[in-house]
Amino acid sequence: MILHPGVLALLGGSAAALALLVAACVVGLQVLRRWDFSSSSATQLALERRTFLVSSLATVALAIEIASSLLFLYTVDDLHRLFVGAMCATGSLNANPVGWWVLPVKVLILLAAPLWIALNGLDVRAGDFPVIRAKYGALLVLAPLVAADLVLQARYFLGLDPAVITSCCGSLFSAAGSGVSSELAGLPVFPTMTAFYACAAAFMAAMAACRLRPAAVARIATAALALTFLAVTLASMVSFLSLYIYELPTHHCPFDVLQLQYRAIGYPLYASLFAAVVFGLLPALSLVFRGRPSFAAAADRAERHWLEAGLAATIVFVGLASVPVVFGSFTMRGY
């Protein structure tokens, strides 16, 4: 067990988020059980008022979770000093491999939480709660995810032993090793770079098309490209973007970018990436519920802003990622 202030903040924050989310689920289920929007009874009015409680509880809980993802990265990066052999977050995560499982859970929450908050916003704005069942159902899926996040984090931090000698990014993300991460690192640079820029261009084109001419096909294409873009970008991060940022032909670590010596460029990078993907997914998500006219109206009003924000975030991300590729003194010629 490591009693590090960041660890306490994370565990405390996740526990608080889980408590709020469970409360939201309980109240949400109570609401759904007697929900009848066509009724104008006092009971229904009380239930409608309770929906604001569910929204508040869930929004606060999910906001805490989003912030805690950032804090988790920061903390794991900070913890590396406690381990022999660790130089960044990779080393800290290797010190207790459960830590690696926290990452995909965090990624899922980072995508799902803003989607839920947006869906909830539309539902409230629509006026007649068109998707109340779907959104409360989604809470029942989110709650176990947040619980898994808490349990995995707790197991990771409780199982950390500073005496363990760990290996760091050098051995994990090296092209010579075996395993998924090494395969990513070993991806040929130029084809990956081509894929990355092609994917970014396609994603932006899809968003622009969707913005100008909203249609089901465009929305689905945007969402599909958003997910592809996320996958390709994460692979590119390990494969070549990291090399340009570190200006080293063998340094593939996706976590060192968070450190101050690289101007903590990792935080705006990852933040803009996730923002772009979430905004790219929203139009397709709203497509599912467009059968309700009040919802469709609210979604139409919001969709333009989503796509514009998504485009902006993608441009920021590609710009930030490209600066070292284009202007850096490092070149991959010969590698």
Binding site: L45, E48, V124, G127
Partner: peptide, 8 residues
């Protein structure tokens, strides 16, 4: 307006 949601 009898059956409008509170916000409406």
């Amino acid at each position: 307006v009898a059956k409008l949601a509170e916000s409406e």
